[in-house]
Design a protein around this nucleic acid. Structure first.
Length: 375
DNA sequence: ATTGAAGTACACG
DNA sequence: CTAACGCGTGTACTTCAAT
């Protein structure tokens, strides 16, 4: 009756697929987009691997050195964000255009939340509500899900036709179900999970498939005998409260396939930062200070362009051995004084250099943006 | 008691 | 030789001090 209809759309191995489109000679070969493997010595990670590369065990976030070890013959490419960004904008516009076709009375109903270059949620509840008036009520329940599937297929067809790129869609009564359904539909597929099926749909999933449950949380859960979502339900809520505090309630809801988070079309920027990993750990003061200043300047430039004020500057420093620390300094009132931002950042950074003698792997600087400072 | 600052940990694409 | 491990962003927790 009042259940929402959420679509999750996600391009299939986006970066790699775009590269294949641009260079058809790559078709059928393993393609890995990410850091420079540098003959096996590279320090970065894989951004995206196509399905050929995945056969070798290569996947997103895998250290590039490991990827190189698994398949040195693969085509390794640096990310071309300009290209992906332009492509992404066109794809998002295609999605908006298709949604408009399903808005009654020439009035565009668009509730879309872009999560990244290649991923978005769309709440099409309102777009389908007119069916309630045009169709006998008991058919409305059934037909709105069929219509949702039609919309998703329409979007996929247009993206394939106009951009020659494949994607997958998940359709469900909330974001979590839509997202997991999309994952199951991959590659190049659509999967609808209706409200009545949602609970059974999540029950057999490994807990780390649940959004918000990563490696660490999954480890804790497995330690207490919870391997799949169904196991979660057999624990008392008090039990989970003990382990996860305020997160327990949400986890419990989700284990029943329930997720009340809204699709939020407008999300304001809360922080802007830059960081960089050195090719080799270093203590060279010239290099460190010059690099830090460059990062600080870039952050300030970006913030000025967006007409932001800053409230807090945070400096991050990762030493050899992956030991990572942060230092932060806040100002009383949000300010657009970005010279002060760079000066305060530098003070914090110099404290790191003085306090620790280890060589440095990564440095970074981030500005926490004050509320409502964007115009 | 509440709020803000500083620092850490975790998650995700 | 079970370690390899970017970047940008968001959230939540803990601890401590000031209001």
């Amino acid at each position: 009756m009042k259940s929402r209809i959420i679509v999750h759309i996600d391009m299939d191995c986006f970066f790699a697929q775009v590269e294949e489109r641009e260079s058809p000679q790559f078709k059928g070969k393993p393609v890995v987009v990410g850091a420079d493997p540098n003959g096996g010595k590279g320090r970065g990670v894989v951004s995206t691997a196509n399905y050929e590369a995945r056969k070798y065990g290569i996947h997103s976030a895998l250290p590039i050195s490991k990827a190189y070890a698994l398949c040195p013959e693969a085509i390794f490419l640096p990310p071309n964000f300009e290209l992906y960004s332009r492509t992404s904008e066109r794809i998002m516009q295609i999605i908006r255009n298709v949604i408009q076709l399903y808005s009654p009375d020439h009035r565009t109903i668009l509730n879309m939340e872009q999560m990244s270059l290649d991923e978005a949620y769309i709440d099409i509840t309102e777009n389908l509500w007119y069916l309630f008036f045009t169709i006998v009520k008991n058919r409305y329940q059934r037909e709105k899900w069929e219509k949702a599937q039609e919309i998703a297929e329409h979007m996929r067809a247009e993206i394939l036709r106009q951009e020659k790129l494949a994607c997958s869609c998940g359709i469900g009564p909330n974001k979590m179900i839509a997202k997991i359904a999309c994952e199951k539909a991959k590659p190049n597929g659509v999967l609808t999970v209706r409200p009545a099926e949602a609970e059974k749909f999540v029950e057999p999933l490994d807990i780390e498939k649940m959004p918000g449950i990563g490696k660490k949380t999954a480890e804790i859960l497995k330690g207490s005998g919870v391997r799949i979502v169904k196991d979660l339900k057999s624990r008392s809520e008090h039990d989970l409260q003990n382990l996860f505090g305020s997160r327990a309630k949400e986890m419990y809801r989700r284990s029943y396939g329930v997720d009340n988070n809204a699709v939020e079309s407008i999300r304001e920027v809360k922080s802007i930062g830059k960081e960089i990993t050195f090719e080799n750990d270093t203590r060279d003061p010239e290099l460190l200070i010059r690099t830090f200043q460059d990062l600080a300047r870039e952050v300030a430039k970006e913030a000025v362009e967006q007409d932001c004020s800053w409230k807090t500057v945070t400096v991050v420093c990762r030493f050899s051995g992956f030991e990572t620390h942060t230092k932060a300094k806040s100002v009383q009132k949000p300010t657009k004084d970005w010279t002060a931002f760079r000066a305060e950042g530098m003070k914090l950074f110099l404290r790191f250099i003085m306090e620790k003698q280890k060589s440095i792997r990564l440095i970074g600087i981030r500005a926490k943006i004050a509320d409502s400072s964007r115009l």
